[in-house]
Design a protein around this nucleic acid. Structure first.
Length: 598
RNA sequence: GGGGACGUGGUCUAGUGGCCUAGGAUGCCUGCCUGUCACGCAGGAGGUCGCGAGUUCGAAUCUCGUCGUCCCCGCCA
């Protein structure tokens, strides 16, 4: 019998990766492996840029140094996988470059071709020219690009920073099933047929929401999971059928304690991924104020130009149509855009946009010059009022007021949208800024078009505040809409990053809320009976949130397309160009599953 | 479900009724070249203009349909 010790270790395929050889002392002997990024054949001398995940190294093959290596190197082509043995040496002084490893080159004395490559469907270059469809079809090539390696690396660091932060704060990472039970409401489910139970189906989880609440009932107390969430809905630039979420839940925690954990995780991520320190603590804004000041439940705080009520100042606008609107009880709201000055054509374009958003029209007063200009300037009896309002809103009276008249919620909506568009147009947004904030105290319900004309603004497991719980019995939508809850979103630069709440932990209250969304007792028992059961045997107060990891990584990298941060994403029609999924299954599978095709 | 944009050698693109036998760049192939780094120079191969129908003497170009991609609205508790 051969002793373990008698087997000699195989010689190394690779001794250094490129990052290591870049940082090794010059003169280091090594064997490098990588892809031929580029070959520059000068006839005698051949230069090859060798690429691996960590970097690039210029390799020199000199026939005067090694005839054999040179003969082999002549046959190398782009994206061949090779092993070069040799040693680094300093570059001639004139040839030194500023990039990493630009002070040295790798003089090759042995070339081994590990695998040849056919000519590629597109070039591996940073300024990629191939269409996105082609990049996805050959994703394994696209992922060789530095930008993609960076995205995958940052994504890894982000998740890893979150894990290590939460692990050190007493959280357990617990996996929950992918083969789950369909729940009514919400998004459409992806469904998986059961072979063992013909005609019955699992649903892939839209989120681990119910499982994590049950884990709290089990007393696991602090749970998190980097969880895949699946929803069969139409896609967008920042939406995929499967996305990854930091799902977290904690028992017996105040809102402040939960925020401190969430903020700590964000601090860890920014430190690990970008080496930046975020402000502490993140500002908080009640939902009601967010709507009144920014016309949005996810305001972009990278610039000002808040919404201001100008009904008083509007008395100085002597126009009959405006007076009659004000007498009808309508309000004037406006935002002041410092530095903005509009041509007639631009004014018409902004007016068209305001009308599309539901405004009757758009009033402007430009305060940049001697005399006020703008659409209602000629009706002004006193421009000082608007100058003062601009001064107190923005500390600046050079710019333009954009104003609408109407009922307050509609004004907020229009100005909230205009604010973002104007902020972009007039370059008010500080792109280098990370404007985190908590939007808190969302109402339990928001208005809906269908009976009962309200829908949960977060989800039906959110705790209504105690004093408002009696209103759950009401049939009046206005009454229902006034129910408050301990419900919060984390917003970054105008994008919703996470969403959470204090959960209901009393079975009778949970039952009431589920009835409220229009479910019969029978449906509730059938679909949520198991969940309510968990609540009957001792459910602690608990709260948590879910945070979109894809969006987080997009923010870290300043990308606006979710596909750029996912290794193998789906197209807008939910297909995978690489594998061809989804695809038909064969007849045997149909019959084995006991289901029929339409 | 609705709306919009796009589809031309491997890749990116020019071409808006005849001047197109479809131009360029890059990649690929051949040759030359010892300090290149998007190497350079010379030559070469490579296209039924997404697919189908129609209008026209004539269609990459106009019309309709269809397929695919992207974006927006709906949808996404």
């Amino acid at each position: 019998m051969t002793s373990v010790n008698s087997i000699k270790p195989a010689p190394a395929i690779r001794t250094h990766n490129i990052e290591q050889i870049i940082h090794a002392p010059i003169g280091e002997t090594a064997r490098l492996c990588g892809w031929v990024q580029h070959r520059r054949d000068l006839g005698q001398l051949i230069f090859i840029t060798l690429r691996d995940r960590w970097g690039e190294m210029q390799c020199v093959i000199d026939p005067a140094h090694s005839e054999a290596a040179h003969a082999l190197a002549e046959g190398l082509r782009n994206e061949y996988v090779v092993a070069f043995s040799g040693a680094t040496r300093p570059r001639p002084e004139k040839e030194v470059r500023a990039y990493p490893g630009g002070d040295r080159e790798f003089l090759v004395d042995g070339v081994e071709l590990l695998t040849a490559a056919e000519p590629l469907p597109f070039n591996v270059e940073e300024d990629v020219k191939a269409s996105e469809e082609l990049r996805l079809k050959y994703r394994y090539i696209d992922l060789r690009r530095r930008a993609m390696v960076r995205a995958m690396t940052i994504r890894h660091k982000c998740v890893s920073a979150i894990r290590s932060y939460l692990n050190s704060h007493g959280f357990l990472e617990i996996e929950t099933p992918m083969l789950a039970r369909a729940t009514p409401e919400g998004a459409r489910d992806y469904v998986v047929p059961s072979r063992v139970h013909p005609g019955e189906f699992y649903a892939l989880p839209q989120s681990p929401q119910l499982y994590k609440q049950v884990l709290m009932c089990s007393g696991l107390d602090r749970y998190y999971q980097i969880a895949r969430c699946l929803r069969d809905e139409d896609l967008r630039g920042n939406r995929q059928p499967e996305h990854t979420q930091l799902d977290l839940e904690m028992s017996c925690a105040t809102r402040d304690e939960l925020f401190s954990i969430a903020e700590g995780a964000m601090h860890a991520v920014w430190r690990e991924c970008l080496g930046e320190e975020l402000p502490h603590p993140f500002p908080r804004l009640p939902y009601r104020e967010a709507m009144a000041l920014y016309g949005s439940d996810k305001p972009d705080l990278r610039f000002g130009s808040r919404i201001v009520e100008l009904s008083g100042q509007a008395q100085c606008i002597d126009a009959a149509w405006l007076k009659s609107d004000l007498e009808l009880g309508k309000c004037v709201h406006g935002i002041f855009i410092p530095g903005a000055s509009l041509s007639r054509k631009q004014y018409d374009e902004w007016t068209a946009q305001a009308k599309e958003l539901g405004a009757g029209g758009l009033m402007t007063i430009e305060l940049s010059g001697e005399e006020p200009k703008g659409s209602v300037a000629k009706f002004l009896t006193d421009s000082l009022a608007f100058a003062q309002a601009a001064e107190s809103a923005e500390g600046n009276a050079h710019g333009t007021w954009f104003m609408v008249v109407g009922d307050t919620p509609s004004n907020y909506k229009v100005l909230g949208q205009l604010r973002l568009a104007l902020g972009r147009e007039f370059k008010l947004i500080d792109e280098g800024k990370w404007a985190f904030l908590w939007v808190v105290d969302f109402p339990l319900y928001e208005a809906s078009d269908e009976p009962p004309y309200v829908t949960p603004s977060h989800h039906p497991f959110t705790m209504p505040v105690a004093e408002d719980q009696h209103k759950l019995e009401s049939e009046d939508p206005a009454e229902l809409l006034s129910i408050r809850s301990d419900n919060y979103d984390l917003v970054l630069n105008g994008v919703e990053m996470s969403s959470g709440s204090l959960r209901i932990n009393k079975p009778d209250l949970q039952l009431k809320v589920l009835r409220r969304i229009g479910l019969s007792d029978e449906q509730i028992e059938d679909r949520f009976g198991w969940f309510l059961g968990a609540y009957r045997y001792g459910a602690p107060p608990h709260r948590g949130f879910g945070q979109g990891i894809d969006r987080l990584v997009m923010s870290l990298l300043s990308l606006d397309n979710i596909r750029e941060v996912i290794a193998f994403p789906k197209t807008a029609s939910a297909q995978c160009p690489l594998t061809g999924a989804p695809a038909p299954i064969d007849d045997a599978q149909w019959s084995e599953l006991g289901i029929k095709s339409r």
